[in-house]
Amino acid sequence: MNESPRVLLGHGTENDFVVLPDPDGTVWPEDRLDAAMVRRLCDRRAGLGGDGVLRVVRTAHVPDAPAVLGSEVERCQWFMDHRNADGTHAEMCGNGIRLFLHVLVSEGLLDRASCEAGVLVGTRGGPRRVGATPDGDYWVDMGPARPFGSSEATLSGQAFPGLAVSMGNPHLACLTDVPVGTLDLADAPGFDPGLFPDGVNVELINVLEAGAHIRLRVFERGVGETRSCGTGACAAAYAALAAEDLAEGTVLVDVPGGRLSVQVGASTTVLTGPALLVSAGVLCPEWLTG
């Protein structure tokens, strides 16, 4: 490993990530960026701290890219190699992929103006088109929200009915009249492992304006409660519209880390919001070998 690999820290509405620039796949190959290293990087006391890790790498250097991208693999120059804070691979992250594009632009790997029409990026949830807005934000086509049943989450002995929604990863979106700010999300909510064999992200949602504005808190599998979740915002917006018997609409989503906008259409979902780099530096050899 390079003695002093570069690292970046950034976030999208305070959903924060350790970002590893590795365009040619030589600094952080799979056998080096293992689950233990991801956990060390994301440790908020002994590491850099983050909800996950994003490796910025060309698709050609990702061994499982052909399997997850299929016929689209040649169209995706870049791949968002995303790991949860516990070291597991993650399919997709709406906040993370906006930050991913921001890093590509900031590192001079893509021109921002050329990104306004959108760039196809590979993820383990499939290809996603992400683009820059003229006002400095970023948008991502998250693909269609796909409901796949009803279930409930349990929290502190209370049941919260919800809608199971796939955004490339599984969600349980629970609308509730209980103010979400009063809920204790220190522990993982209970859920039905039969419906969610690989775990689930749980959204607790207050409707502020029917079909137009919601407040959201999220417990992400493999991470815990996060300040924001892009796929969770999309699932929550879809569930809020479905509760009003609406198939389409634009919903403002307030999360602890800020505000996102979700446009739900007949065939896809578009998430828009900010992305920000906070710092850049190098990992010290003493930490890498410690």
Rank of each mutant, 00 (worst) to 15 (best):
S156F: 13
A164G: 07
V202Y: 01
L185W: 09
Q158L: 13
V207C: 12
M167W: 02
L155V: 07
D192H: 15
R217F: 01
R146L: 13
G224P: 00
T226C: 09
G199R: 03
D187L: 15
R227D: 04
G143T: 03
A240D: 00
C234H: 02
P144F: 09
H171A: 07
G211C: 13
R146T: 14
N201E: 09
A173D: 04
S156P: 02
D192F: 14
A212I: 09
G131C: 10
F219Y: 12
D135A: 12
D187T: 15
G143H: 00
Y138H: 06
V207Y: 10
D135Q: 13
N169F: 04
S151F: 01
V180Q: 11
P179Y: 12
N169P: 04
D245C: 12
V218L: 08
D245A: 15
T182N: 10
G222Q: 02
N201Y: 05
T176V: 13
F148G: 09
V200Y: 04
D245K: 12
S151V: 03
E220V: 08
D187K: 12
R217P: 03
I205W: 02
L185H: 07
Y138G: 01
A145F: 05
D187V: 14
D245Q: 14
R215C: 10
A237M: 06
H213V: 10
A235N: 02
S151C: 08
P147D: 06
C229G: 03
H171I: 07
E203L: 10
D187H: 11
S166D: 10
P170A: 14
G190H: 07
F196M: 14
G168R: 01
G157F: 08
P161I: 10
G230D: 00
G230V: 06
A235P: 01
L246C: 15
M142G: 00
P189W: 03
D245L: 13
A164T: 04
P147K: 06
A164S: 08
F160V: 08
R227L: 15
G168P: 01
S166P: 04
T226N: 06
G199A: 14
C234Q: 00
H213Y: 13
V200N: 02
G190P: 04
M167I: 05
L163W: 06
S156M: 14
E244W: 07
G211Q: 06
G162F: 03
L183P: 04
R146Q: 15
A153P: 00
A186D: 15
G190M: 12
F196Q: 06
G143I: 00
L216W: 01
L204K: 00
C229V: 04
A164P: 02
E244Q: 13
T176R: 09
G230K: 03
L185T: 06
E220D: 12
F191C: 08
T226G: 07
S228C: 13
G131M: 07
A186V: 14
L208P: 01
W139Y: 13
T231I: 12
A159R: 13
F196E: 06
Y238N: 01
V178R: 14
M167F: 05
N169Q: 11
P147W: 07
A132H: 04
V178L: 15
I205N: 00
A212G: 10
G149V: 06
C234R: 00
F191E: 03
V180R: 09
G131V: 06
G224D: 05
V178H: 10
A188Y: 05
P197V: 11
G168N: 04
